[in-house]
């Protein structure tokens, strides 16, 4: 999936040699990242350390996802980028424009047309198909980080499958609130082995990860970790038998397309508390409107 047509970065330094490779990263780096991705796919849910590079966007703004996308994208790919479910949020626009510039690839807002979908905080409502890759931007890849700050300790906990502490946290929630008060970045167990952070997607999206037909790749640039869920992999949200995992339910339909059973954004209409709920997934909303 590589091409080596050197593109000149518009507005780049005028000194000799200041040009960029296809999809920004040099081929050595892409090979290194692809090796990490292959290892991640081979051990679903395991965080593979990789030598994350500086990217032209800041850490915390999707550098992990961008590096993963840059390493797998080819000239024939069709790219979709979403942030908060929408194609037109600023960061999504910026990342899409980046790949148009450095890889000159086709882009789309249509979920079903895309071969690679890079996302921050959502999984599209339209079910993904075989052959598609969903690339998540991940801020904190370690699900145990808030229970144990030390990397040396958390790696040992994963190695020895010591996940009792994670359930202590869930137990405390139920004892205090009567239910598990975790609404996003809700931890999952992958293939009965590794506890994994699904990135800050709402827990509403967790079930979409389970047995997905698409390949799911997770990139954390600042924390230098890549992990993966291969297609048709078991992904279970942590819970108790008598307090099973549940997703958010919205009482109203989307005010624009009328859909139910999807994730909604609350839009404030005025300063007197007026609001309405609309689809978080803008492409899905548009498709629903076109159908009716």
């Amino acid at each position: 999936m590589t091409a080596s047509n050197n593109l000149t970065h518009e507005g780049a330094p005028t000194m000799a040699g200041a040009t960029y490779n296809f999809a920004y990263l040099d081929e050595q780096t892409k090979r290194m990242i692809r090796r990490a991705i292959l290892k991640a796919i081979a051990i679903p849910g395991y965080q593979v350390p990789f030598a994350s590079r500086e990217m032209p966007m800041p850490y915390g703004w999707g550098t992990g996802g961008v590096q993963v996308t840059a390493s797998i994208i080819g000239p024939d790919d069709v790219l979709k980028v979403i942030d908060q479910g929408a194609d037109d949020t600023t960061n999504a626009v910026s990342i899409r424009a980046f790949f148009q510039k450095v890889a000159n690839v086709a882009v789309t807002t249509r979920t079903h047309e895309a071969t690679i979908i890079q996302t921050r905080h959502r999984i599209p409502e339209t079910p993904l198909k075989s052959g598609q890759v969903l690339v998540y931007q991940v801020p904190i890849p370690e699900p145990l980080r808030f229970l144990e700050p030390r990397e040396t300790e958390t790696r040992t906990m994963h190695a020895l499958e010591e996940y009792g502490l994670m359930h202590v946290k869930l137990y405390e929630d139920i004892a205090r609130h009567g239910y598990i008060a975790k609404t996003y970045a809700y931890p999952v167990k992958v293939e009965d082995r590794y506890v994994m952070d699904p990135s800050p997607i709402p827990k509403f999206d967790n079930p979409k990860m389970h047995m997905s037909e698409a390949l799911q790749l997770f990139g954390a640039g600042r924390e230098k970790r890549i992990y993966a869920i291969p297609p048709h992999t078991k992904v279970v949200s942590l819970d108790f038998e008598d307090h099973p995992f549940e997703v958010q339910k919205f009482s109203e339909p989307c005010a624009i397309c009328g859909s139910r059973g999807i994730y909604l954004d609350e839009v404030i209409l005025d300063d007197r508390g007026g609001h309405m709920f609309v689809c978080s997934d803008t492409d899905f909303c548009e498709e629903q409107r076109n159908e009716h």
Binding site: L165, Y171, A175, F240, E241
Partner: peptide, 17 residues
């Protein structure tokens, strides 16, 4: 409760009650 329950959860008990 969680202090006492931790060892049970560590060996796989998953029924809160």
């Amino acid at each position: 409760g969680a202090n006492v329950g931790e060892r049970l959860m560590a060996v796989g008990e998953r029924h809160y009650g």
